[in-house]
Write a protein that binds this DNA or RNA. Structure first.
Length: 425
RNA sequence: GGAGGAGUGGCAGAGCGGUUGAUUGCACCGGUCUUGAAAACCGGCGUACCGAGAGGUACCGGGGGUUCGAAUCCCUCCUCCUCCGCCA
């Protein structure tokens, strides 16, 4: 959520930014609407505050009059306060209502894109930030897509997942399970070596937590929900990990705070079938190592660059061909100011698969989360950033396909200490 | 799950219907003293909103209520502690 004061002070910049996110003229009226509602809010609040001030003063007088035994005067005053109360009750209702409407409108305004975000509406308009220079890997005749390789070598079993749970819940087996665990350990160890604190968070969160990172109220349909306990299964570790610092005021010297966490991620991904979602391309449960950074506004874009370098390093070490995209206004998430996607090339599918998304949210999340730091003069919102480092399922898909040989799947050197085998067959 | 107790500022801990946004101690920041430090002493020290400012308003786990007035009374939810039960 944007700060209302920011919108007020930077109205034209906000409108310009919304245009990059392809807001229509009609939608742009939200900005004026929000400012008008805030004006109304201020007015009501001022009136209410004045009324309450009067009430407080009268109540105090009643107290001293009672002590002095002047019952009649006190009684008269009591009646006046009673009338004030009627009006203040009315104003309180108006204030509550105005605030609710303001919030409802404000929550519809997405984050303002960073100046480097290219215009555009669809993924085709994303800018290739770093291309894969060398020729793309070519597989010989008879090369198989990962879902067939999985069957051949018993890496994972989606049909079995259907039996146990439903579609999109893979069951990893044998060396496939070991490979999964190896990747998780490798990613975590790399993050820890880069100075991130490892977190193992809860996999279910309450409403407040889901709201603070922006999953609610908008995207509840994307999360699994346990109605009986009013809990949500996390769609990413970002949610519980970032919320560790909800309602916290940090000392400036504590920034940056760097955290990493492995969790399974649960996404409902309402129905879509076809070749592009086969196998591990899109599933309801997948493993991911996430990195989260809370940083000073002056430094956050340098931090974002470092996070890109970290993720690049992982893919380099796995020897997977990848490219980095700078997302265009139309393809960015609601909450992000700047997002880079990492895609690995799936040689058998001849497609790029998204394996990471690294974003700077600036103050969009921290505002809703009331996550601030003290800078000597007062408090300021911190910048929050996060990225996948990395999402497992599609990395596994690409590894299986790109590394297939007649003898089996060749495990990247960097993983062999973790898997204990060089060949998955 | 059952029975009892408790939730107050960074921490500890008063207050239990009226000038208390909250005594006090510790921590922290500034000053005096000192060659420097410690000690001692003096001052400061929550957050948010409105306001140019003076100042005002709200917040004592969350929400609701009683009252002229609530940290203090009532209801409800949440959390923690003790005991019992169950359990990886």
């Amino acid at each position: 959520m944007l700060e209302i004061n920011f919108i007020r002070a930077n109205k034209s910049r906000v409108i310009q930014g919304l245009k990059v996110k392809n807001f229509s003229e009609e939608d742009l009226k939200l900005v004026e609407g929000v400012l008008a509602l805030d004006d109304a809010r201020k007015e009501v609040q001022t009136n209410l505050d004045n009324l309450l001030a009067e009430r407080n003063q009268l109540s105090k007088s009643i107290g001293s009059l009672m002590k002095e035994g002047k019952k009649d005067e006190a009684e008269a005053m009591r009646e006046r306060v009673a009338r004030l109360k009627e009006e203040s009750t009315r104003l309180e209702d108006t204030l509550r209502d105005t605030k609710a409407r303001l919030e409802e409108q404000l929550i519809k305004i997405p984050n303002i894109p960073h100046e480097s975000v290219p215009p555009g509406a669809t993924p085709e308009d994303n800018e290739v930030y770093k291309a894969w220079g060398e020729p793309l890997p070519e597989l010989g005749a008879g090369a198989l897509p990962h879902w067939e390789l999985a069957q051949k070598y018993g890496v994972f079993d989606l049909e079995l997942g259907v039996k146990l749970t439903g579609s999109g819940f893979p069951v990893y087996r044998g060396k496939g399970a070991k490979l999964e665990r190896a990747l998780i350990s490798f990613f975590l160890d790399e993050a820890i070596a880069a100075g991130f604190e490892e977190i193992i968070p809860p996999l279910m969160v309450n409403e407040d937590t889901a709201r603070a990172t922006g999953q609610l109220p908008d995207k509840e349909g994307q999360m699994y929900y346990v109605e009986r306990d009013n809990l949500y299964l996390i769609p990413t570790a970002e949610v519980p990990v970032t919320n560790i610092y909800r309602d916290v005021i940090l000392d400036e010297g504590r920034l940056p705070i760097k955290m990493t966490g492995y969790t399974p991620c649960f996404r409902r991904e309402a129905g879509s079938y076809g070749a592009h979602v086969r196998g591990l391309n899109r599933v309801h449960q997948f493993d991911k190592v996430e990195i989260v950074v809370l940083d000073h506004p002056d430094r956050s874009y340098e931090t974002l660059r470092q996070m890109l370098a970290h993720v690049s390093g992982l893919l380099d070490k796995l020897e997977l061909p990848y490219r980095i995209l700078r997302l265009c206004g139309g393809d960015m998430s609601f909450t992000s100011a700047l997002t880079f996607d990492f895609e690995v090339f799936s040689a058998a599918q001849k497609r790029w698969l998204e394996v990471s998304s690294v974003s700077n949210f600036e103050t969009f999340q921290s505002n809703r989360m009331k996550l601030r730091f003290r800078d000597g003069k007062g408090t300021r919102l911190v910048h929050t950033l996060n990225g996948s480092a990395l999402a497992l399922a599609r990395v596994v898909a690409a590894l299986l396909e790109n590394n297939q040989t007649p003898e089996g799947i060749v495990i990247p050197k960097v993983l062999r200490n973790y898997t204990g085998f060089e060949l998955l067959n």
